[in-house]
C-alpha cells in the first residue's frame, strides 16, 4: 500500500493507534477475514484439494456438483473446484499487482499535476493521450513487440504475467490520476496547506504529509475498483489471445467461458463470479477500514 510510506518512522504508537481504530471497524474485520480465507483457499487449498485443474476427464463433462467433483465439471470434464482454486492465484496476483501499479502511477501523476502548476499541462495532456489511445490495437502492438522477448526471458507463464500486469497497470491509471488531481487542486488552496507553505515546509513534505492523506478516500475507491477491473480485463485479454495460454485457468476466464453454459451447468458461472465479487467486496471493506484508521480526525473519536 502506498500509505505505509507516509507513516513509516513515526513509531509504534501510531501503528498501534491505527490498528486500534481498524479493529473497531466491523466491516474491515469481516473483510480481512474473508480476504484471508480467499488467500488461504487459493494458496494452500490446492495442496489439500489436489485434483489437477488441467486434467480432462472427458467422459465426466458438464456434470453438476457431486462428491467426486464438488463444484462440477466443465465442457471438457475439468474439475471446477480445482480450476477455481488454481485460477484464484493468478487472478488475485494480477488483480492486486496491476491495481498497485495503476494506483502508484495514477496517484503520482495526479499529485504532481495538481500541486505543481508547471507540470499540470504536460502531465494532463499525457493523460488525455493515454485515455485516447485505442486499447485493442495498442495491445496487439505490445504483444507483437514483447511477447516473444518476455517468453524467452522468463518462460511462457511468468513472461505473460509480467506483460499482463504491466499492460493493465499502464492502461488504467488515468482515471485515478484525474480524480486525484481534481481533489489536490481543491486541497492545496485549503488553509492548512497555506499555513504549511507559509512556514516554509518543503513541497515534498506538504504533498506527502498534508495533501495525500486528504485525498486518500478516492484513492481507496480507485483501488477497490481497480482490483475488479484488473481481474476482468485479464479475462478479456486471454479472449483476444493475448493472455495466458488457453488451458491456464483464471477467474475471469472461467466466468467468460462459462457464460454460455449458464443454463446447462450454472455452477460454472456462480463460483468464479462469487469469488471475484467476494474478493472485491473484501478489498473494499479493508480499504474503508484503512482509510478510517489512517484519518486522524476519525481516529480520535
Amino acid at each position: 500500500m502506498t500509505d505505509t510510506t507516509i507513516i513509516e518512522g513515526k513509531g509504534r504508537t501510531l501503528w498501534g493507534d491505527v490498528w486500534d481504530q481498524y479493529k473497531t471497524h466491523k466491516g474491515a474485520l469481516i473483510g480481512t477475514a474473508v480476504f484471508a480465507f480467499i488467500l488461504f483457499a487459493v494458496f494452500i487449498g490446492p495442496y489439500i484439494y489436489t485434483a489437477d485443474p488441467q486434467y480432462l476427464s472427458i467422459r465426466d463433462k458438464n456434470q453438476g456438483p457431486s462428491l467426486a467433483y464438488p463444484l462440477g465439471t466443465d465442457q471438457l470434464g475439468r474439475d471446477m473446484l480445482a480450476q477455481v482454486l488454481h485460477g484464484g492465484r493468478v487472478s488475485l496476483a494480477v488483480g492486486i499487482i496491476a491495481m498497485a501499479i495503476s494506483l502508484l502511477v495514477g496517484t503520482a501523476v495526479g499529485l504532481l499535476a495538481g500541486y505543481f502548476k508547471k507540470l499540470d499541462g504536460p502531465l494532463m495532456r499525457m493523460t488525455d493521450l493515454f485515455l485516447a489511445l485505442p486499447l485493442l490495437p495498442l495491445l496487439l502492438v505490445i504483444i507483437m513487440l514483447f511477447r516473444d522477448t518476455l517468453r524467452g526471458m522468463f518462460g511462457p507463464e511468468t513472461g505473460i504475467f509480467i506483460l499482463i500486469v504491466s499492460i493493465i497497470g499502464a492502461t488504467s491509471w488515468m482515471h485515478t490520476a484525474r480524480i486525484v488531481r481534481g481533489d489536490v487542486l481543491a486541497q492545496k488552496e485549503r488553509e492548512f496547506v497555506m499555513a504549511a507553505k507559509s512556514i516554509g515546509t518543503p513541497d515534498r513534505r506538504i504533498i506527502l504529509r498534508h495533501i495525500l492523506p486528504n485525498v486518500l478516500s478516492p484513492i481507496m475507491v480507485s483501488a477497490t475498483l481497480g482490483v475488479a477491473n484488473a481481474i476482468i480485463t485479464e479475462s478479456a485479454l486471454s479472449f483476444l489471445g493475448l493472455g495466458f495460454p488457453s488451458d491456464f485457468p483464471t477467474w475471469g476466464r472461467l466466468l467468460f467461458d462459462g457464460a454460455n453454459y449458464m443454463t446447462l451447468t450454472p455452477a460454472r458461472v456462480v463460483w468464479p463470479g462469487l469469488a471475484i465479487s467476494l474478493t472485491v467486496l473484501s478489498v473494499n471493506f479493508i480499504g474503508d477500514g484503512l482509510r478510517d484508521a489512517l484519518d486522524p480526525r476519525i481516529r480520535g473519536r
Binding site: 475488479a228 476482468i232 479475462s235 457464460a259 463470479g273 471475484i276 465479487s277 467486496l281
Partner: peptide
C-alpha cells in the same frame, strides 16, 4: 455496487 462492478456486463 460491488456486485455491479465485479460482475462484468457480458455476464
Amino acid at each position: 455496487s460491488m456486485l455491479g462492478f465485479s460482475v462484468p456486463t457480458f455476464f
